[in-house]
């Protein structure tokens, strides 16, 4: 976690644009939260039938009526203003990279308890409870520097 799915029409974004968005989302998330960069996952889902997508972190579904949609899944426990800041940052970054109007993009971030997920062989810590050793696994950031 986090896990951000970006729903777009088919063949709308090339690889370079997708990677720029994914890197931008990583910047946004890590600029606000304490997550190591290699814990930020971004998937692009292409479809010509927008409208509904299953929640990755809960039992429900997200309905949307915009051309582009960001479906996020994060660790639970952050204040609402932080969650809003993350989502607004993601939408802003997506629009910055693509030139698409914010009116055409919407999103939602759902949450699940951190302790329900194991990543890198370790149970995730709650937001704000990250131990120093958590960052030792941030090999992506190291290789990208």
């Amino acid at each position: 976690m986090p896990y951000y799915r970006v729903i777009t029409p088919k063949n709308e974004l090339d690889f370079d644009a997708r990677q720029e968005i994914a890197t931008g989302f990583t910047d946004v998330h890590c600029g606000i939260s304490a997550a190591p960069r290699n814990f930020v996952h971004v998937e692009f889902m292409e479809t010509d039938k927008p409208g509904v997508i299953d929640d990755s972190h809960g039992a429900g579904q997200f309905s949307y009526d915009t051309k582009y949609y960001i479906a996020g899944g994060n660790r639970a426990g952050r204040p609402q203003e932080i969650k809003d800041q993350i989502l607004n940052g993601l939408i802003g970054k997506f629009c910055e990279v693509t030139g698409i109007s914010k009116n055409d993009v919407s999103g939602h971030i759902s949450e699940a308890p951190a302790k329900w997920t194991m990543e890198g062989g370790h149970v995730l810590p709650d937001p704000g409870e990250e131990p120093p050793e958590w960052y030792a696994a941030d090999t992506v950031a190291a290789s990208g520097s």
Binding site: Y3, Q19, A22, H41, V42, A59, G144
Partner: peptide, 18 residues
């Protein structure tokens, strides 16, 4: 080309159980 981890192409699997 559709999935990234830390901004780089991902090789990570997800196993999500209910």
């Amino acid at each position: 080309g559709l999935a990234f981890r830390g901004g780089y192409p991902s090789t990570t699997s997800q196993v999500k159980g209910k």
